[in-house]
Lab assay of single mutants.
Amino acid sequence: MTVLPKDIPGDSLKVTVGTANGKPGDTVTVPVTFADVAKMKNVGTCNFYLGYDASLLEVVSVDAGPIVKNAAVNFSSSASNGTISFLFLDNTITDELITADGVFANIKFKLKSVTAKTTTPVTFKDGGAFGDGTMSKIASVTKTNGSVTIDP
């Protein structure tokens, strides 16, 4: 049996954390987006972790974005102690894959008090994996961190 590389060099799934701005007490939304989904033969499963400074940001909610089908079954998240974990699994293993680019999740943060303008990162942590529509590992994932700026 011969195994051929399935990824064209330079191609990767792009996962990007967005940015937001606000004043202390505001609730802002930071999107997590996927790009080049079709090039990577869709997404059938993924789990990953984001870190944030809990002294500056309070997670209000984490909701599935419009590219997630049947989110009540296929999407899960949790947030505590400065870490947000995400889990997606197409429970049907074929019919509810992520097949389009767009917003995977929206994180709502309540901004805490600061004395001066502060930009705090929302960054990928170690761990996690992504699988394509056949549940094979997506070897190349380009992750881009985001941030939230609090301006009193």
Score class of each variant (00 low, 15 high):
89 L>W: 03
86 F>Q: 01
147 S>L: 06
141 V>S: 02
25 G>C: 14
126 D>H: 15
131 G>W: 03
137 K>W: 00
37 V>M: 06
53 D>R: 11
124 F>E: 02
115 T>W: 05
45 T>Q: 00
64 A>F: 07
99 T>S: 06
128 G>E: 04
145 N>Y: 07
116 A>D: 06
113 S>P: 05
84 I>E: 14
85 S>H: 02
15 V>E: 07
97 L>G: 04
96 E>K: 04
142 T>D: 02
110 K>L: 02
121 P>T: 06
142 T>V: 06
20 A>S: 11
119 T>I: 11
41 K>R: 11
75 F>E: 01
132 D>P: 03
9 P>I: 07
113 S>Y: 06
33 T>V: 07
63 D>S: 14
14 K>I: 08
112 K>I: 04
111 L>S: 04
150 I>E: 14
17 V>D: 05
81 N>Y: 15
136 S>C: 15
84 I>H: 00
92 T>V: 03
145 N>T: 05
96 E>C: 00
151 D>E: 15
121 P>D: 05
67 I>F: 10
82 G>K: 15
9 P>N: 08
72 A>I: 12
10 G>M: 11
94 T>G: 03
141 V>G: 04
117 K>M: 06
62 V>R: 07
142 T>S: 05
130 F>W: 03
121 P>G: 07
30 V>E: 11
57 L>E: 10
114 V>Y: 04
39 K>S: 11
133 G>H: 04
40 M>Q: 06
15 V>P: 08
133 G>E: 04
148 V>L: 07
74 N>S: 03
35 A>N: 10
139 A>I: 04
24 P>L: 12
7 D>C: 09
40 M>G: 09
12 S>Q: 08
55 S>C: 12
145 N>D: 05
38 A>D: 08
60 V>S: 11
66 P>K: 11
79 A>Y: 15
69 K>V: 14
122 V>M: 07
148 V>A: 08
103 V>A: 10
20 A>D: 10
109 F>P: 00
149 T>D: 15
90 D>P: 02
47 N>E: 00
66 P>M: 14
56 L>A: 08
92 T>A: 03
74 N>I: 01
81 N>Q: 15
139 A>H: 15
54 A>P: 10
94 T>S: 04
118 T>F: 02
117 K>A: 03
148 V>M: 06
73 V>N: 06
49 Y>W: 03
71 A>T: 06
50 L>F: 08
45 T>S: 03
152 P>A: 15
73 V>A: 05
138 I>P: 00
17 V>N: 01
126 D>W: 15
13 L>I: 09
70 N>Y: 07
140 S>C: 04
73 V>E: 14
118 T>V: 04
80 S>Q: 14
61 S>V: 09
34 F>L: 10
26 D>Y: 09
129 A>Y: 00
73 V>Y: 05
99 T>M: 12
91 N>P: 02
27 T>Q: 10
5 P>G: 08
51 G>Q: 11
76 S>V: 04
144 T>L: 07
70 N>D: 08
143 K>M: 04
42 N>H: 11
60 V>I: 09
96 E>M: 00
11 D>M: 14
147 S>A: 06
146 G>W: 01
62 V>F: 06
136 S>W: 15
11 D>G: 13
90 D>H: 02
118 T>P: 08
95 D>P: 02
64 A>R: 06
56 L>W: 08
76 S>P: 01
72 A>M: 14
15 V>T: 09
89 L>A: 00
99 T>W: 05
95 D>V: 03
68 V>W: 01
113 S>T: 06
35 A>C: 06
110 K>E: 04
80 S>D: 05
23 K>V: 11
5 P>A: 09
128 G>W: 06
46 C>N: 08
3 V>Y: 07
32 V>Q: 11
51 G>D: 14
82 G>S: 15
134 T>Q: 05
26 D>A: 12
68 V>N: 07
32 V>G: 08
110 K>V: 05
12 S>L: 12
120 T>F: 02
74 N>H: 00
104 F>W: 05
31 P>A: 11
50 L>P: 05
69 K>L: 08
25 G>T: 11
46 C>T: 10
22 G>Q: 10
54 A>E: 14
86 F>R: 00
61 S>F: 11
59 V>M: 11
41 K>Y: 10
116 A>W: 03
102 G>A: 03
99 T>N: 06
76 S>Y: 09
53 D>P: 13
118 T>H: 06
137 K>S: 00
41 K>P: 10
76 S>N: 10
80 S>T: 12
66 P>H: 10
81 N>R: 15
